[in-house]
Design a protein around this nucleic acid. Structure first.
Lengths: 237, 237
DNA sequence: CGCATTAAAACTGTATCCAAAAATACGATG
DNA sequence: CATCGTATTTTTGGATACAGTTTTAATGCG
């Protein structure tokens, strides 16, 4: 079974990460070892190692003897993630702008074009790739990796937000304007725009997440009520 | 076979982390699964999961089919870690100072006192605990956790630096002064001092690490030469 | 001395087993 | 009828044994 390509536990981790980031596994979704092993056609050991890895990445939490589940990020943490972005990204942009060349600008523009006709699915990832393109020359790899992790951890909430608002608002125009300012090497205005861009999205997104969680809670309250009315008739699966 | 006291993978991870942070396992030290399992009295499974976890934390790197070793941080990364500290810590301090109370100051002072009669061993950890005490009220848990990880990843190089310079220089006076400024709620001067404090240590520490690595390289060049002179006489272990 | 072949070591994953803890189902009782 | 306690089932965490593969070393020959 051509398992020669790469280490299995890494592939399992990549697959689970993809499912969590994409929202395919919602917050609180339980990651059952045996089920995943059967589904992926491997034993439990690579699954367990992958779960450990994702736990260290903060995407899942494991409770001993109870298993792993997709970690739900509290709204305070979500807000804080955006605050961190608002601190770090302008810093990286400042360091990067003087060294950006035409190839970097073209790459960023290509991502903008790509995002134009993109649905909800790949939007969060493309958004990060656009921002990252502007930090290409910042010379701070560790910080970029940290930011990538931050973007990954909030990607599913960005998706929820876009699904609720059914649109990507003025992000596209923000991005285009930001790219123009970078081309003009206008660090002052570019960082100012970037900061407001990040913080604006933050407020709206937190709002959406609170609405979504409120809805989910109502649903959770509704389900037991339904179960009382229709005893034992629900299909559970 | 008292295997009732199973060693959990978390404990293995904590132990290995401790050994890496303390410098007990130097850069490049190979983490052999079977050897560790035998030493810790457990099977390879917890060891493997612990290694995956540490890999995600950036403390070790694994090369497929070759095993795991303690990750060596390039000097550029070390410098970058301090740059990140210089950006994030003043930010946290600014957010925290207005809300610090006497208990927080007393805790910070206690760490300073503790550091006075402390050798190389626990100094890096205490240093972080002092800084963290000042960010107690910043309300940014994610950022604090990130910084903790940064401090952990550079702790062994701090140890190397102190061993080479055999002293903790003016860190103590810096810390005392910083605490005074925090007590006075002088955000301006406190953040300025903090920034210079971090960047000063950075330059000196990078220098020490470069010296240490230069020495180690010489040693590596010397060893094969010795082996040639005294064929087969080296005890390998 | 250099290089090719071979042997050993070490990692990766599978399968099976067991113990412990949690979840669930079930039944007794007030 | 609701609630509490017990028993069964599920799931996790780990141990053990084994096979396959790759890297490293050791050996031997020209």
């Amino acid at each position: 079974m051509e398992n020669t390509a790469g280490i299995t536990s890494e592939r399992v981790a990549a697959l689970l990460r993809e499912r969590i980031l994409s929202g395919s596994y919602a917050d609180g979704h339980a990651l059952r070892q045996e089920k995943l092993a059967a589904e992926l056609g491997c034993s439990r050991i690579p699954v367990r190692e992958a779960i450990r890895q994702l736990e260290a990445e903060g995407l899942v939490i494991t409770i001993p003897r109870r298993g792993a589940m997709v970690a739900e990020m509290p709204v305070d943490r979500i807000r804080e993630s955006f605050e961190l972005r608002a601190v770090l990204e302008p810093w990286l942009l400042t360091a990067s702008i003087p060294f950006l060349d035409e190839a970097d600008f073209a790459a960023a523009q290509a991502v903008i074009d790509e995002m134009a006709d993109l649905g909800f699915e790949g939007w969060g990832d493309a958004n990060w790739r656009f921002h990252k393109a502007l930090y290409a020359k910042c010379g701070k790899e560790t910080a970029v990796e940290m930011l990538q992790r931050i973007h990954e951890s909030i990607e599913r909430y960005l998706r929820i937000h876009m699904r609720l608002t059914s649109g990507r608002d003025k992000a596209q125009t923000d991005h285009s304007l930001l790219l123009s300012l970078c081309r003009a090497r206008d660090i002052q205005r570019a960082t100012a725009l970037l900061t407001t861009h990040i913080l604006e999205v933050s407020d709206k997104l937190v709002e959406s997440v609170e609405i979504a969680r409120g809805l989910r809670r109502d649903e959770a309250l509704l389900h037991p009520a339904l179960r009382q009315n229709a005893k034992r008739t629900n299909g559970e699966h």
